[in-house]
Design a protein around this nucleic acid. Sequence first.
DNA 1: AATAAGATGTGAAATATATAACAACATAAT
DNA 2: ATTATGTTGTTATATATTTCACATCTTATT
Lengths: 216, 216
Amino acid sequence: MKVRNNISNSGQVQVPTPTLRRLPGYLSYFKALKIGGVEQVSSGQIASVFKMDSTLVTKDLSYTGVKGRTKVGYNVEQLIETIVRFLDFNTRENAFLFGVGNLGRALINYQGLQHYGLNIVAGFDTDPGVINTQIRGVKIHALDDFRDLSIKTPARIGIITTPDGSAQEVADLAVAWGIKAIWNFTPQSIKVPENIIVENTSIYSDLAVILNKLNH
Amino acid sequence: MKVRNNISNSGQVQVPTPTLRRLPGYLSYFKALKIGGVEQVSSGQIASVFKMDSTLVTKDLSYTGVKGRTKVGYNVEQLIETIVRFLDFNTRENAFLFGVGNLGRALINYQGLQHYGLNIVAGFDTDPGVINTQIRGVKIHALDDFRDLSIKTPARIGIITTPDGSAQEVADLAVAWGIKAIWNFTPQSIKVPENIIVENTSIYSDLAVILNKLNH
DNA sequence: AATAAGATGTGAAATATATAACAACATAAT
DNA sequence: ATTATGTTGTTATATATTTCACATCTTATT
């Protein structure tokens, strides 16, 4: 008999990916509540904002270990702290960014990522026009300097925002020099060794869903 | 007894959202194959590239109506055409973009969207510095001009790339003047009437998944 | 004090999605 | 021609996720 029950090998509860993907949305809402001076919030309120079932909210939150009080709801401050810690948004994780085009530049400029634990420590490109420039204090290097820099300032995450055609090439390089997880913003599918994590952020998937909802 | 069986009211088969989200990925791969001169591809090949079960690939493709040939596989050209039509990437859908910051600019510059059926016809902002400028032929207007423009050149999709705080305000305006679907790139949750479609593109969700995989 | 009402939290049921099993078939090899 | 093999496509099973039902608890009201 196979037992899974959301328990992984290490004995930790395996969080469903859909839950993991919803938590940052809640978090943003809770932060807005805090700014508005709200101290308590119920699963019903949350559910109505996100148009979902309130018990699903409860279940999602229960994974983080936060405790609510009957008839009162959850403490906003506590929700924020617990979720931030649960998602590792409080730890500082270094990342390299490959491909400083419009999207790459947008990501570096996006202060949000820093507040969510992601520290882009350097950018890389092949265009002499951007090499040695700085964006918000992040220096852009020639791709050839990657090896040296990855020794000096190691990073586990590589963000790929190159033109589609270069994605695989850059990914190979990144993996060769110690990147453990690749965040791929190109639509290109990337082949990596078994132990390397790849997360694809596909704008086109979202577009497909929108168009489908609009037309059907 | 409730019957769902993936059959919607209109009698059409309801496509699972996960399938819908995977199809653009396949499409990109098929386009690359075509450029490489490959004419046939099997579900097994596709599955190995995307590290998934081959029957799931078959199922996904079957929704689009494309037919493969036993022992041969699918015709690449045919796959591309069928998926493009299935996802409505061949129709031209107008969109307004609100908030011409780094991300907004990146999206307008991103030719990809045009090739996937999305036509950003105008940008809006409140910053006098960008109003009346042009990005790749897309004119940026004052937010106040939105009403007039939405009458002249109607669009069904509104893309929100404003600072978080303005998202709701802009969404209200967009809905008031006829936008049917909102593509929200801010982490802010947005309240809209029942009949309006909202699709949230949350970078933080992807980040949460990456960090979770890295650390657990 | 007792009762009512509104909330969390949990275990069971229902639904959705993915995997497995296999039949049907087309091509290549013998 | 016949057999072997690889591949599609479909039905059945397993797993994952969401919803439902309800017990429990906390506060407010009578």
